[in-house]
């Protein structure tokens, strides 16, 4: 396999739970408006939430942030948040699919469900990231991303507001990168050959 910096990635998937709003804010505000590939995010939110979080992040970030719509075609420079009370999946042609299948790991949306479908859809062209959170959602999915040849990144548990999700992921694999939130935007830009934007907020 080529060095990470020389690989071509088609999408980023992020799984986050407790502490997610602050973590996403820190990462997404530091990404440039022309970030070249789509970013798909599952964060555990209450089932009756509306798209307020997407709107909030969109108003604070240069990169476009929106709630994922059913049957939406992935576009570059866009962050898609899984809607409350739906699983988010992605198909090989880059089309988003929602489902109301039962919760997985007590969660809907579930990180594992997104990661598993993205690993199948994008194989080695995928970057998977596990951030702060309670529980263990996402660790199995991250392993599937690794097994499909994708690149895996885990937030350093010492840096995480809740270290359980990163720790559970580290029990299953050794990530390609173990980073702090502050390091993550620059790493993503390096991996996708974009210029890192200095966080001004």
């Amino acid at each position: 396999m080529a060095a990470p910096e020389n690989r071509i990635f088609k999408a980023v998937v992020i799984g986050v739970s407790t502490g997610g709003v602050m973590a996403l804010k820190q990462i997404l505000t530091a990404l440039p408006a022309d970030f070249p590939i789509p970013i798909l995010v599952v964060t555990h939110i209450t089932p009756t939430a509306d798209d307020g979080l997407a709107q909030l992040l969109n108003s604070q970030c240069s990169i476009r942030v929106k709630e994922a719509d059913e049957e939406e075609l992935l576009a570059p420079a866009t962050v898609y948040l899984a809607p409350a009370n739906y699983h988010l999946l992605v198909e090989r042609r880059g089309i988003l699919v929602l489902s109301v299948d039962p919760p997985v790991n007590f969660a809907r949306p579930s990180v594992d469900v997104l990661f598993e479908s993205a690993a199948e859809a994008f194989g080695h062209s995928l970057i998977g990231i596990i951030l702060t959170g309670a529980g263990h959602d996402g660790s199995r999915g991250l392993l599937q991303i690794r097994q499909a040849g994708g690149l895996v990144i885990v937030q350093d548990p010492a840096d995480a507001e809740m270290d359980s999700m990163p720790r559970k992921a580290l029990e299953l694999l050794v990530p390609d990168y173990l980073v702090s939130l502050a390091e993550l935007p620059a790493l993503l830009c390096r991996l996708t050959h974009t210029t890192h934007q200095v966080n001004v907020i």
């Binding site: 699983h87 999946l89 992605v90 198909e91 090989r92 699919v97 489902s99 299948d101 469900v113 598993e116 479908s117 199948e120 859809a121």
Partner: peptide
């Protein structure tokens, strides 16, 4: 049926 959810099931 949509591929991704059918495959998961």
């Amino acid at each position: 049926y949509a591929e991704a959810s059918l495959r998961r099931r």
